[in-house]
Nucleic acid binder design. Structure first.
Lengths: 247, 247
DNA sequence: CGTTTGGTTGAAATGTGTCAAACTTTGTGG
DNA sequence: CCACAAAGTTTGACACATTTCAACCAAACG
């Protein structure tokens, strides 16, 4: 039980970033039966077309939701970090409309739909919190759509970096303006709807403009104000409270 | 009461397209206190930054969710039709992250958050249905992101037309392969992330390829198979059941 | 009937894609 | 621990989808 509480703690932290639970509710979440599994890098955890009977939480590492078009082009919809439940929507959608793959080696925890529904029945406020979570996901989709539809590559990349570090910081997974960036340039390309080559060019520009430094997977924001202006970033859509947002 | 039932009936039809309600549940939904109001064309019903205390359902007409970037570029996220509740997410998100405007004159019905929560408390399955509705919205966002991020203008437009008529037909709002298309070319442009001029050229191509006919606001699909291939359209993400999907 | 809004078209500019090659880093097995 | 392979990054040249600008036309509307 203590073991399980340890495993699920990033999930609790994430849920608590949006919703205030009672001690009893937290205990109920921590008591969820969870099956921990290690997943290698670049593996699908679930696939489009699956009819899963369980959700999974990311206990450590990063993952991404994506879809592949009929002609083989890939679009990422979201990048996920520790504490998130990327396929929470599978709880209600019979057939999965998208796949989710690891970006790094991950520890994931599987939780059956049945256990989640049971939890929701006895604790209606937890159901409300899970719904809220999926609504925030929807808000982020709207922002990504705006980003890809209306901004040029340079602004898209700046926006993505702003969001990424803001989300990490809101969960205490990054300090200051420096963090890990676990995606390859090709993955960034498929998140922003541009080519890999152009990602490289844009990164070069962001560097030479003194906005960021990116060496290997280490991202450092050198000019936060400049980057937020370039990406027209306003964290409102992330639904963080004051404390979690960057000043 | 009979009057109200009449008003809310498109909403019931929409909810029932995803979820099977009991007679009691349907009666409870029909009994929701609803304030009907006519809205002129091209008016915001709610605006980004609002903190609404009520949702609105579209009783007749069409509307669209959108956002405007810092430099004044507009992105539509969804087109809404009669029966939908475009700002259902406002039930949980304190501050609205997007605006919703009418595309045609509309009859809308306002329902207070309080009344909806009360309904959800006494009828947990209705809460589940509303959550499901927002999850399907999320699924559609993912598809739009894929459309805008990975397809060329021609395919994007084809995909949009396929989705539009499929959704209309699933609610019995269109017959065969012909329907009303209430958006201007400039609005289509902002939904697809392309310029108005290019929308015009793409429409010209779709016409000359014999896929569609579009005169005024009357859209007719002349070659459904061809259009679905051009738009790589697979209605899975709309979560319709067999009967509602086009054969 | 004039005014406004939306649609249509051409020409030139440009952001981004594609192709190809070289370079660097990472990971792995000998 | 090295050697090699594989994966990821960087760069240049060229192609092209789409944008921008501008003008004109058609339809809707008061």
């Amino acid at each position: 039980m203590l073991e399980e509480l340890h495993h699920i703690s990033p999930v609790l932290r994430k849920l608590e970033s949006l919703f205030a639970f009672s001690g009893q509710e937290k205990a109920a979440i921590a008591a969820l039966p969870i099956q921990v599994q290690a997943i290698r890098i670049d593996q699908d955890v679930v696939r489009e077309g699956d009819r899963p009977s369980r959700c999974f939480a990311i206990l450590s590492g990063s993952a991404a939701t994506y879809k592949v078009t009929a002609v083989g082009r890939r679009q990422f919809h979201a990048f996920h970090i520790a504490g998130e439940i990327p396929d929470l929507h599978s709880l209600q959608l019979g057939v999965l409309d998208c796949s989710i793959a690891t970006l790094t080696p991950c520890q994931v925890g599987f939780i059956t739909h049945e256990a989640i529904w049971q939890l929701c029945c006895t604790h209606p406020r937890i159901l409300k919190a899970l719904w809220l979570q999926t609504l925030v996901d929807g808000s982020i989709y709207r922002e990504w759509l705006t980003n890809v539809g209306q901004r040029q590559a340079y602004g898209r990349m700046a926006h993505l970096f702003c969001e990424w570090i803001t989300r990490l910081r809101s969960l205490g997974l990054a300090r200051e303006y420096s963090c890990d960036l676990p995606m390859t340039q090709s993955q960034l390309a498929d998140a922003l709807g541009i080519s890999t080559v152009h990602v490289n060019r844009v990164l070069k520009d962001l560097r030479s403009d003194g906005l960021i430094s990116l060496q290997g997977s280490r991202l450092e924001i050198l000019d936060w104000d400049g980057l937020t202006i370039a990406g027209e970033f306003d964290p409102l859509y992330l639904c963080l409270n004051e404390r979690q947002a960057l000043s």
